[in-house]
């Protein structure tokens, strides 16, 4: 432990993926979540993800044992003091993140770097109530984190060079390419992908094309791994709305005003893969069912079911 330990706060999907990626790269990791239940579920899912890697020949069982031995879990925020770097992956709301940063700021030594995985909230805002904001920084990872070799790093107003350089070094250590921006909510990826998702939803809403056709056109036409609607299901339809609203509040740019259908889907519980239904339907294994795209003519019924 000690020098090499990284703390991940928040055991939801992003936290799990981050734990997997960081421990696989050889670092010791402590995963913290205030809820024991969420923590245990999170740790179990990390193990399941490693097993899935073995099944695809990505890891050996010996390597998995070594990775698991590097992962610890805790429900005690004081454990965060053991890391040289703490990365939070909580829900995308300013209050929640700001509160956690205040607590971490008081718990950790002033030299500990506190990073936020926030996609759309300004790191300067999140760190506003910290006593030592110079050690705060935003590191936005892209899901699925173990596979996507990218991290966007954003400096806050008060972030010092040492913190920034350590963050870049850490990115390299876990085999990610670092792209840096200056205190820009949405960074590059979220800022550019959100209007595309939003437009895709409008195209669907207006009955111009089906889910499958929209995704196929964008996937093949631009060489994307996933179409915009499949991507929205993956990110979570509710999260997409969160992101859009945050960025609209930040920029007052009309392209971030959420399409009506997005909000309707969220209200009806169509939140994407995590609820087994969104723009598509999914089996319990998270795999998309064939020909399950939301039909325009069924929209009104679908959301009132």
């Amino acid at each position: 432990m000690g020098q090499k330990t990284v703390v991940i706060y928040g055991a939801a999907t992003m936290g799990q993926e981050l734990v997997q990626a960081v421990a696989t790269a050889g670092c010791e990791v402590i995963l913290i979540d205030h809820s024991e239940e969420k923590l245990n579920t999170g740790l179990k899912k990390v193990e399941a993800a490693l097993d899935a890697e073995i099944a695809r020949w990505g890891l050996t069982s010996g390597e998995k044992r070594a990775i698991i031995s590097r992962i610890k879990g805790s429900t005690d925020i004081r454990e965060a003091a053991k890391g040289w770097l703490v990365i939070e992956t909580l829900k995308e709301t300013l209050d929640v993140k700001r509160q956690l940063f205040r607590e971490l700021d008081a718990t950790c030594r002033p030299s500990t770097i506190i990073a936020s995985n926030s996609a759309t909230i300004s790191i300067t805002e999140i760190a506003a109530e910290c006593k030592y904001p110079e050690r705060t920084i935003a590191m936005h990872f892209q899901s699925p984190i173990p596979k996507v070799p990218l991290v966007e790093i954003s400096r806050g107003q008060k972030t010092n060079n040492e913190t920034f350089e350590s963050a870049v070094r850490f990115a390299k250590m876990i085999n990610k390419n670092a792209v840096t921006v200056y205190d820009c909510p949405g960074f590059i990826t979220t800022r550019i992908i959100l209007p595309m998702i939003n437009q895709a939803v409008k195209v669907l809403e207006e009955g111009i094309a089906s889910c499958e056709q929209i995704d196929t056109a964008m996937k093949l036409g631009f060489g994307l791994n996933a179409g915009p609607l499949a991507l929205a299901d993956k990110i979570g339809v509710d999260t997409v709305v969160f992101y859009l609203e945050n960025l609209y509040a930040e920029t007052f740019d009309q392209s971030y005003l959420p399409a009506k259908l997005l909000k309707k889907l969220v209200r009806a519980g169509y939140k994407g893969i995590k609820t087994s239904k969104g723009f598509y339907r999914y089996g319990s294994d998270g795999l998309r069912l064939a020909a399950s795209g939301l039909k325009v003519e069924q929209l009104s019924q679908a959301v009132h079911q």
């Binding site: 890697e53 695809r56 020949w57 990505g58 890891l59 050996t60 596979k147």
Partner: peptide, 16 residues
Amino acid sequence: EYELTISEMDNLLNKH
């Protein structure tokens, strides 16, 4: 066939 990434295939050939 299995939609493997380069590093997965590398592992398959070298370690599995």
